[in-house]
């Protein structure tokens, strides 16, 4: 099964094919993951990443909160959680301004899934972290600075 999928990926060159196969019942639906948004993940700067996500210049919202430490002991693992009280949330994205590619992760939330996700990201240096939320068709965001102390001592 997995092997076949890989073949499909190579020859079909896209997940459109995968989606079709899933629709036709050829592969299990849980394997037909949504297409990876390469354009957004490789966009580079925060501005370009927001553009690639179709977010433009989103307004800031006080209803979005970022749960991250003020200081991360190690940039290799920075816990970042995003939650919001905004209604009709469709997606949440985490962007790290100073990373080579700002977009770190995006989450699509089907109805019934709470607007509250947590993950852990790498940060090359101290940076602003942005939470981008699409709710009721509109993009909004919040920001928090996270300082990174890269332990240079003690191996």
């Amino acid at each position: 099964m997995i092997k076949q999928r890989r073949e499909v990926l190579k020859t079909g060159g896209g997940l459109g094919v995968l989606g079709l196969l899933a629709a036709a019942g050829v592969i299990k639906p849980e394997l037909a993951l949504a297409a990876w948004n390469e354009g957004a993940f490789k966009a580079g700067t925060l501005e370009k990443s927001l553009a690639a996500l179709g977010a433009g210049k989103p307004a800031t919202s006080g209803d979005i909160s970022i749960n991250a430490p003020d200081i991360a002991e190690n940039g290799a693992v920075v816990p970042i959680g995003v939650s919001t009280t905004l209604p009709k949330v469709e997606s949440i994205s985490i962007l790290i301004e100073k990373n080579p590619d700002a977009l770190a992760a995006t989450f699509k939330l089907p109805e019934g899934t709470e607007a509250n996700v947590q993950t852990r990201c790498k940060m090359g240096q101290t940076s602003n972290v942005y939470a981008l939320v699409k709710a009721d068709g509109k993009f909004l965001m919040a920001m928090k600075e996270v300082k990174v102390t890269l332990g240079g001592c003690g191996g």
Partner: peptide
């Protein structure tokens, strides 16, 4: 203060 924030970080992970 730094130590406190680091402690919070450690708790989170």
């Amino acid at each position: 203060a730094t130590t406190d924030e680091i402690a919070r970080y450690r708790e989170m992970i």
